[in-house]
């Protein structure tokens, strides 16, 4: 069973214990795929679906889209676009950050600039 499929199945079944609308059939219907296909995905018998379907699944299951895409071995198209716009800058940055702890990365990319007020 793939990490992606197992993760999706676990998330869906956790919701199913609270809400019957999270049956395999109903979730498949809401994200626009066949139940048999979703079943195969969950059991890791077929490759993970495309980005749009993964996004729909993430919305449906309240999962983080980037995490779900990563489990499927994919990078969000908007992130690809950001990297492709300034490839050298972001390639250097990501290599430098490869070993950095989370708090250091957070400080680097998210600090709010204070000004004169």
């Amino acid at each position: 069973m793939s990490d992606f499929g197992a993760h999706v199945r676990k998330a869906r079944e956790a919701k199913l214990t609270q809400d019957r609308r999270y049956s395999l059939r109903q979730v498949a219907q809401r994200i626009g795929v066949e139940p048999a296909y979703l079943s195969k995905v969950e059991r890791g018998e077929t490759a993970p679906p495309g980005e749009e379907t993964i996004r729909a699944l993430a919305r449906e299951l309240d999962e983080d889209t980037d995490v779900l895409l990563a489990l499927a071995g994919k990078v969000s198209s908007d992130l690809k676009e950001i990297i492709l716009r300034r490839p050298r800058l972001f390639a250097d940055l990501l290599r430098q950050l490869k070993q950095a702890p989370d708090h250091a990365i957070l400080r680097l990319v998210r600090e709010v600039k204070d000004g004169d007020w």
């Binding site: 708090h103 957070l106 400080r107 998210r110 600090e111 709010v112 204070d114």
Partner: peptide
């Protein structure tokens, strides 16, 4: 003494 922005939240972290 940073303030961060992360997913529409301001994070105040006086780590020093």
């Amino acid at each position: 003494m940073p303030v961060y922005l992360d997913r529409d939240e301001l994070i105040f972290h006086a780590d020093d």
